[in-house]
């Protein structure tokens, strides 16, 4: 049984609303094109797509543009898109609906930014596609290690060997990492690649 703090992702479903913002990374682009097949006619006339393609995502650009969204943005990373996203949310009104598709790291970070802007996580449509790599917060030094695929993992900041728990914080958009050999630092458990 997975832990109850672990987010549950669904399948993007059209919502009633005045405006729609869809955000995807390279893994999530196909979720948006799948979603478009069940969206009502004219849906994309009041929609913006933010596509954060990363190094190898350019292949999806044409398919997303073909949906004819009112606005289309292509950016290389969440960090790069952040100023645009923050301004868009600050100027938006109730009636804006948010959809996020892609890796767990992308979904977590967009949900976190949306929450600050006044959209609760329960109101965000999410769909997970792609890698299961985790963002892990070290409970000891508070640093976040990105793209963790192993159990245990080494904290990129303080170097402690961390047990990656299923316990998840929306506020940090990260799983919790706790020192795995605190009772006996000489015990070094084997490392397994499990978050793929």
């Amino acid at each position: 049984m997975t832990m109850l703090s672990r987010p549950v992702y669904g399948v993007l479903t059209p919502q009633t609303g005045k405006n729609h913002l869809l955000i995807a990374d390279a893994d999530g682009a196909s979720a948006i094109t799948d979603f478009a097949k069940k969206a009502p006619p004219g849906f994309f006339a009041s929609a913006e797509i933010m596509y954060l393609d990363g190094p190898d995502g350019a292949k999806n650009v044409q398919a997303l543009k073909a949906l004819s969204p009112a606005r289309f943005y292509q950016g290389p990373s969440i960090a790069a898109a952040l100023p645009r996203l923050r301004q868009l949310l600050a100027e938006s009104h109730m009636g804006l609906r948010l959809y996020v598709a892609g890796t767990e790291g992308l979904i977590g970070q967009i949900v976190q930014i949306a929450n600050e802007a006044g959209i609760e996580y329960t109101a965000v449509q999410t769909e997970h596609r792609g890698s299961l790599a985790r963002r892990v917060q070290c409970v000891h030094c508070k640093g976040i290690t990105e793209n963790v695929t192993t159990q245990p993992c080494t904290c990129a900041h303080c170097g402690l060997l961390l047990l990656v728990r299923d316990h998840y914080s929306r506020r940090y958009a990260a799983f919790q990492g706790v020192c795995i050999n605190a009772e006996d630092p000489t015990e070094i458990p084997p490392t397994e690649e499990i978050f793929r």
Binding site: M1, L4, S5, Q137, K142, D166, H167, Y168, S169, R170
Partner: peptide
């Protein structure tokens, strides 16, 4: 338990690590 990690969670989420009791 870590307040810093658990802050903002709901009742079921911050109790998530407790074994047996949920079932």
């Amino acid at each position: 338990w870590s307040l810093d990690f658990d802050i903002g969670m709901n009742f079921f989420e911050w109790h998530a690590p407790v074994p047996l009791a949920h079932q």
